[in-house]
């Protein structure tokens, strides 16, 4: 890759083009491999397609751009703390409705930090939910027989320490 290139263009699964800085793209292992293998330059017309929809990709790029400086050069404790607060807001305010798409994108793009964050956010949303709430939210049909349900209730009436 030409060292003069600071940003590359990527294509979403919807066909929209997005710019991402090279340092931010490096947070994704597949994009990083691509950067190492393909000669990107100003006159290069190769645009990698990312199998992530535009709405999700915008958020993924936002995450990458925010985390890239720390990932590339390290950060002080206060920077790390500030980044942690930003992560919480990022997940709380912006991406709740596309959380599962973010999760799949982070998995597909091999982005460990975003994957951990999205998994924890999904787990936090399920925290304290009852069985029927989980069924309703996630459109899950109960396929236990009444005997099996009774058996489960006996085996695990809930955590015995709660």
């Amino acid at each position: 890759m030409s060292s003069s290139v600071e940003a590359i263009t990527v294509l979403s699964s919807d066909g929209d083009e997005f710019k991402i800085t090279v340092s931010a793209a490096k947070l994704s292992k597949p994009l990083n491999w691509m950067l190492e293998d393909v000669c990107f330059s100003d006159d290069c017309d190769e645009v990698p397609t990312i199998e992530v929809n535009s709405k999700t990709l915008v958020k993924v790029i936002e995450y990458c751009e925010k985390h890239a400086p720390r990932a590339n050069s390290g950060a002080s404790d206060s920077d790390a703390e500030e980044l942690k607060k930003w992560d919480i807001e990022f997940m709380k305010m912006d991406v709740k409705d596309i959380l599962f798409h973010i999760l799949m994108a982070a998995n597909y793009l091999h982005m460990e930090g975003l994957y951990d964050l999205a998994c924890q956010t999904a787990a936090d949303l399920m925290k304290g939910m009852t069985v029927s709430q989980i069924r309703k939210i996630f459109h899950i049909k109960n396929d236990f027989s009444s005997e099996e349900q009774e058996q489960l209730r006996r085996q695990h009436p809930g955590c015995s320490f709660d």
């Binding site: 999760l103 787990a123 399920m126 069985v131 955590c159 709660d162």
Partner: peptide, 24 residues
């Protein structure tokens, strides 16, 4: 991915989740 989410639930939440359906 679903296993990753499960790993991040507390034990009591995992036990609730297990009672949702056979896949859970």
């Amino acid at each position: 991915i679903l296993e990753g989410i499960c790993d991040r639930l507390s034990i009591s939440d995992q036990l609730q989740f297990a009672r949702v359906c056979k896949s859970c």
